[in-house]
């Protein structure tokens, strides 16, 4: 700090605490609502402090099911989300890292063409090509499958670009040395490049895990059976159109459980998360 201005420092703390309170308030209320019973939720206003139903509510949601109609237990739905998030994160990293390895370390016809073809997909978000993409997936018979949920989202221009930028900063001497020692390209990739990329991979994993877990529009289209819903879709489906029928305490317990994994990933891997965020956007 350049000079000592106690009032300004005090003001800064006040603003920050206010900011934290405002940002945390929706989630605090979600937690509070998930610990009360149905009767309390119907009386307005909802209390501001937690109640005693916490274990019951979470047990009901996890084992007996979140939707009144078919009673699919939530752990199944959370499992779907986990599969989707992991498949997208790992899949994106895997195919992007080998693609950028090919683009950076080999000289072959059409190299630039392929690079631009991948790069151009940045301009094609899911929303603008949603109907034909759905048609492709349904023609391939991948509706209501994990493959259909994840495969179309796995191609990644940003990840390819990130790895390309990183590989370009790796000193040429490493590749030279590997070649002199008689290592082929795959060996060089596995023993030299991959260990060097560890931090980039970790950072990218955090970002892509959150991206995969939070997908909404695509699973909404691809899943028709409740057993294939992801957690985010499940919550949306719990809110019945007739307002009075919505079991808010169970909805909020589900929301807590659906938020928990990505939030935990962000908080536990905060360093990688910030790095990944700032790097992917460069």
């Amino acid at each position: 700090m350049i000079e000592n201005r106690p009032w300004l420092t005090f003001f800064a703390h006040v603003v920050l605490i206010l900011g934290v309170v405002v940002i945390a308030f929706p989630v605090w209320m979600t937690f509070v609502a998930s610990t009360h019973d149905a009767d309390t939720m119907l009386r307005s206003p909802v209390p501001l402090l937690p109640g005693g139903q916490i274990i019951d509510n979470y047990r009901v949601v996890l084992t007996e099911g979140f939707a009144q109609a078919s009673r699919t237990p939530l752990w199944k739905v959370l499992f779907n989300s986990l599969v989707m998030a992991l498949a997208i994160a790992i899949g994106k990293i895997a195919i992007s890292i080998i693609a950028s390895f090919a683009i950076v370390y080999f000289r072959f016809p059409l190299r630039n063409f392929f690079f631009w073809m991948i790069f151009v997909t940045l301009m094609l978000p899911v929303e603008v090509r949603i109907i034909p993409t759905f048609k492709v997936v349904s023609d391939l018979g991948m509706i209501d499958t994990y493959v259909g949920l994840t495969l179309p989202l796995i191609a990644s221009a940003t990840a390819t670009f990130l790895f390309r930028q990183f590989f370009l900063t790796v000193p040429d001497e490493l590749a030279e040395a590997a070649r002199i020692d008689g290592a082929g390209p795959l060996r060089f990739f596995w023993d030299v490049l991959l260990p060097l990329s560890k931090t980039s991979i970790a950072a990218l994993f955090v970002i892509q895990f959150i991206y995969g877990w939070n997908q909404y529009l695509w699973p909404l289209l691809i899943t028709t059976q409740e057993s294939m819903y992801t957690a985010v879709i499940g919550i949306k489906r719990m809110i019945t159109s007739g307002d009075a029928l919505t079991e808010w305490h169970l909805v909020m317990a589900t929301a807590m459980l659906a938020m928990l994994p990505p939030v935990a990933v962000v908080i536990l891997m905060q360093r990688w998360f910030v790095r990944g965020l700032v790097e992917t956007e460069k």
């Binding site: 308030f25 979600t30 307005s44």
Partner: peptide, 24 residues
């Protein structure tokens, strides 16, 4: 301050819908 990034947009919508729900 960083963790709201991890909350899915649809879940954020549900949370705000609950806070501002005219009944509850």
């Amino acid at each position: 301050l960083v963790w709201p990034y991890a909350v899915a947009p649809a879940v954020a919508g549900v949370l705000f819908g609950f806070l501002f729900n005219p009944r509850v």
